[in-house]
Design a protein around this nucleic acid. Structure first.
Lengths: 127, 127
DNA sequence: CGTAACCTTTACGTTAACGTAAACTATTAC
DNA sequence: GTAATAGTTTACGTTAACGTAAAGGTTACG
């Protein structure tokens, strides 16, 4: 099964320009038909999905590119494996920190929220 | 205690341009000396810190502006209170979703990480 | 077979969030 | 008092991640 560019655009609710832009950046390389139209395979679709997921986590295209090529390269050699592991370690660390910070922020917001609700109830009670 | 613009720039490791830009956007309004130099109070410092925290959570300056003015306005009226509560509710929801997604991503990364480590150990074992 | 809907490339436009430079004034250090 | 350092405004430059438009080929349909 293959897809046209607008098929994917609709599926992921993004513009065709965006998809072409990712190609400009070297993140996807779909096959071409005889006339030159882009043909996306299941694999290409998955790749696009991966990119979009990265975006949702606020990774820049540069970072996404980095991650993709890293995991795409030949992972058989020991050196490559070690590099991948180190990279993954770092990303996990970053994520952990960010999650903790967001959790803290959320708790603060919840306190504020409770505060405001209390104030509102005070007002309601005085009616 | 007051601060000059470069005092704050050093404290938070940002440029003076950045601080002036926040002022352009109306996010801070420091006092001025007779000669026109910016004088930042403790309150201004706190405000700046707030902005930077927002940035760390990937909020845009527009969102930060929104939040600040919302919490700055008169919160005494019932309508205002309700608005604030609704806004907070929404932000908490957004945060919750994002945290969950990041948590999921982290777990995936950890699995991958374990995978690669195993492979590396296989190689080491064969030596 | 015409035409609407879709595809292509090329290229200039846009927005956020600053960076950088110029031209000038104020403060601080000796 | 004179450098050096720091501050001010004005204004143009920059980067990422697309948006938009033009000018033209392609495919699908009635």
């Amino acid at each position: 099964m293959t897809y046209s560019i607008s098929d994917l655009a609709k599926q992921f609710d993004i513009s065709t320009r965006t998809i072409r832009y990712y190609e400009e950046r070297g993140l996807i390389e779909p096959k071409r038909s005889a006339s030159g139209q882009r043909i996306y395979s299941k694999k290409d679709r998955t790749r696009l999905q991966l990119i979009l997921r990265g975006k949702r986590f606020n990774f820049s295209l540069e970072e996404i590119e980095e991650m993709i090529t890293l995991f795409d390269e030949d992972r058989s050699g020991r050196k490559q494996l070690e590099k991948t592991i180190r990279y993954g370690d770092q990303k996990i660390q970053e994520l952990t920190t960010q999650i903790e910070e967001m959790q803290a922020l959320k708790e603060e917001l919840e306190e504020l929220h409770a505060d405001f609700k209390e104030r509102l109830q005070d007002i309601e009670a005085k009616k």
